[in-house]
């Protein structure tokens, strides 16, 4: 009588292990790709509906009280006044920067297009600020492309692409780093880094540069695929310690990064 080498339970565990290895192998050689694409294609409309439902429910729950609205209104009025003053000052800078702008235009010969995309979900196995978008490789999306909201406000970059979905890393994630410059007289350079999904900070601003609250920060265009001039935010606070080599500034994004919906991916 033939003896069993392993008992029933160990056979089951071995079968699962073999199935797992096979699953990974079939994925990497591309055999599972049609099945994955079909599943994602079937799921995407449901994900969009579910996301919209969640947005309606959870955004409605986050309504402000009257007192909070009054406070926010007062703050916005102050910001509007500051923005008008800044606008006037920037107009005077336009003339000085025209020559520089022409040089930049000459360097940026390739024009870019933008495709609209929508957030459909968020992986639950990571605490990173990563969202799933409904456009993928077949739509021309590649890793490293910038993602904007409204009129050119940078909200993140593409960090992963499948055939019909992509992964967006928000600009306020700790893994995010974007080359930027401040719209001041010196066009002070720096790096915008995320702080645990809660805030933005501009680092490596030279000590010799004059940086002030309210100045607008834009992309520097030094990174591949990210054009210059995309708005990142406004300086909220400046940290200028003489014992340190560089200044840092806290940046406030003009959009609520945790409540994004329809976005645009810039295709170079």
């Amino acid at each position: 009588m033939r003896q069993k080498i392993f008992n029933f339970r160990i056979n089951a565990y071995l079968s699962i292990a073999v199935a797992l290895v096979l699953l990974i192998f079939l994925h990497w050689v591309g055999v599972l790709k049609p099945i994955e694409d079909i599943l994602i294609y079937a799921i995407k409309p449901v994900e969009k509906l579910t996301y919209r439902l969640g947005l309606d429910i959870f955004v409605n729950q986050n309504t402000l009280t009257k007192e909070q609205l009054d406070t926010e209104n007062a703050e916005l009025n102050d910001k509007l006044s500051d923005a008008l003053i800044e606008n006037a000052r920037l107009r005077s800078l336009v003339t000085k920067s025209e020559t520089l702008q022409k040089e930049l235009d000459f360097l940026n010969q390739k024009s870019y297009n933008a495709i609209s995309t929508q957030i459909i979900g968020k992986p639950s196995d990571t605490t990173a600020q990563i969202y799933l978008l409904d456009k993928g490789e077949k739509d021309g999306v590649k890793v490293g492309l910038p993602v904007i909201y409204l009129d050119g406000i940078l909200v993140g970059k593409i960090v992963g692409v499948e055939n019909s979905v992509a992964q967006l890393l928000l600009i306020n994630d700790s893994q995010s780093a974007v080359g930027a410059q401040i719209q001041n007289e010196a066009s002070s350079p720096g790096i915008i880094v995320g702080k645990l999904g809660l805030a933005l900070e501009m680092q490596f601003i030279p000590q010799t540069e004059t940086v002030a609250k309210g100045q607008i920060v834009v992309t520097s265009g030094l990174e591949e695929n990210i054009p210059p001039g995309l708005v990142i935010g406004q300086i909220d606070e400046v940290s200028n310690k003489t014992e340190e080599l560089f200044q840092t500034a806290t940046i406030e994004s003009p959009v609520p990064l945790e409540r994004l919906d329809v976005l645009s991916i810039i295709i170079p």
């Binding site: 996301y51 969640g54 959870f58 957030i119 459909i120 968020k122 992986p123």
Partner: peptide, 21 residues
């Protein structure tokens, strides 16, 4: 999986910590 990825994970505050799987 759809509810987890597209609803629960995007909820605000502490609801997003729920892992229904």
């Amino acid at each position: 999986d759809i509810i987890q990825a597209s609803f629960i994970n995007l909820a605000g505050e502490n609801v997003a910590y729920l892992n229904i799987l």
